[in-house]
Design a protein around this nucleic acid. Structure first.
Length: 144
DNA sequence: CGTTTGACTACGC
DNA sequence: CGCGTAGCCAAAC
């Protein structure tokens, strides 16, 4: 039930779009990183604090209609584009037009182009969490 | 109202 | 590195 969300937003699509609008030109973020910024919410089991699955960030990108949401700046955790070839090419061209470069295996170097997230003040204003930059094991160095 | 569906990810080879 | 797989979970149907 959407009313049980911690943030005041009515549904998580708005929250996802709001975050994606903060990604600056020339930078990229990942589905998992965006998802990690949204606080846990109460699921059907009150004890289980659920987090938004990165899949839903992808779903939110698919539903983007407003031109002010830079959907092309969200790629997957491998640094690659998660779209069928034709649309993927469009996304790649858009990013290249912003200065993002693709290396071997059509991968973006996240250490160079990865967005580190909004500043603390913005996060606080919107009741969101700092992005989890530790993509794999908790005690690992951040990937970017 | 139950089933299917992903613009995902971590992990094991 | 690449590839397959299990888990993911609200929305769409």
């Amino acid at each position: 039930m959407t009313s049980m969300w911690n943030p005041p937003d009515k549904d998580f699509f708005d929250t996802v779009w709001k975050i994606v609008r903060q990604i600056p030109e020339g930078k990229v973020s990942t589905y998992g990183q965006i998802a990690s910024m949204i606080p846990p919410y109460e699921g059907t089991d009150p004890d289980a604090h659920q987090r938004l699955s990165p899949r839903w960030v992808g779903t939110a990108m698919r539903k983007v209609e407003d031109d002010d949401v830079p959907w092309q700046r969200v790629i997957n955790s491998q640094g690659k584009i998660s779209l069928p070839d034709q649309s993927g090419d469009k996304q790649r061209r858009l990013l290249e037009g912003e200065g993002v470069t693709f290396g071997k295996s059509a991968k973006v170097d996240l250490t160079e182009f990865g967005w580190e997230g909004p500043d603390d003040e913005w996060l606080d204003e919107h009741n969101l969490l700092p992005p989890n930059l530790f993509l794999k094991k908790p005690k690992q160095k951040p990937l970017f």
